[in-house]
Write a protein that binds this DNA or RNA. Sequence first.
DNA 1: GCTTTTAGCTAACACCGTTAGCCAAACCTG
DNA 2: CAGGTTTGGCTAACGGTGTTAGCTAAAAGC
Lengths: 192, 192
Amino acid sequence: MPRAGLDPAAVVAAGAALADEVGLANLTMGLLAERVGVRTPSLYKHVSGQEDLNRRIAVLAMSQAADAMGSAIQGYAGRDALAAAARALRTFVMEHPGRYAATIGVEPSGPDDPLATEGRRAMDAFAAVLRGYEIEEPDVDHALRMLRSLCHGFATLQAAGGFQWSADIDESFEWLIAFTDQGLRALGQRRA
Amino acid sequence: MPRAGLDPAAVVAAGAALADEVGLANLTMGLLAERVGVRTPSLYKHVSGQEDLNRRIAVLAMSQAADAMGSAIQGYAGRDALAAAARALRTFVMEHPGRYAATIGVEPSGPDDPLATEGRRAMDAFAAVLRGYEIEEPDVDHALRMLRSLCHGFATLQAAGGFQWSADIDESFEWLIAFTDQGLRALGQRRA
DNA sequence: GCTTTTAGCTAACACCGTTAGCCAAACCTG
DNA sequence: CAGGTTTGGCTAACGGTGTTAGCTAAAAGC
């Protein structure tokens, strides 16, 4: 019996890819084992269980989302940066619905948890966007939460098919960016 | 063996209540059966399976959320109505996290699906709010989607413990309402 | 009051996550 | 390169959960 040459990272990567394909709810240990060419119990040599697998997929997703947003906003500021970050996040969610779903409902165990680290890194992209609007300190935290809520809500609702009615969804998203940009600009000008 | 006198509605109501208590992920057929005082297979006389149960809980949640929002906005307009609707939805999600979670990821099978009907009814509350802002027609659909995304995103992120960092969450929510109100007012005044 | 329907039951199966325990492949170390 | 050690794979087995089949007795209808 030849070895498959697996390691935790490979298992997690395969799990994330499989989750994107079949949906996180249908990601089963047996299916993942089959995918990586191994019997089910062998997975437990690399991952301590399904919960651990889910957490690691979430960390991977956070990290990749942070990368995507971080590089998307480079060279832009203000509205362009906002649009770039928002589009990058939405694109990521649409292309990787399974791994993104893994991030919902997992709580970091502490500030050193990789989940928290990567989460902050993703937030940093939005924070950089806000810097371009010169918003006063007390408003920044709230604005950050708003951006996250908005993108998260829109992406998950679309991914779940929650927008049943007529208007074009891409158009709505661009409208939403414009709306937010105007609001943030108004907030920044209050300082003057 | 005396009868328990169950019917689908009773089973679904008990399931929703149980989901709120133990979390949707921990809602098991055995647990629900125990709760309603019956053996597990008996549930299948009222509900065709776990997926069906989930759908029905989602319909119930949609209906109740629509009721809560609808009655919350009565007598208000403009910013007050917006705040009332948003708070009603958030309160509902916080008080009934399990049944609300059941609504995530379920797609209506068609326009006559009760899920779609109740969903529209919930949207009607937001639509009524928007009427107070006198927004031009093409913008209404987009604004509706924005309101839904924002509330859904905020509520689910909070319910999942996704807001790890410092600032007060209630305060953020009120800030978010104010931000949206200003944006919508600006939109309405563009008409003049 | 008899028949029909139906809501409950027990028994059993399939599938999934997980653990225990074994064995051989890879990797050190002398 | 030979020896032991680590380790990544395997089979076997258990517990729990969703579900179906088939029976029986309680309720409903004529």
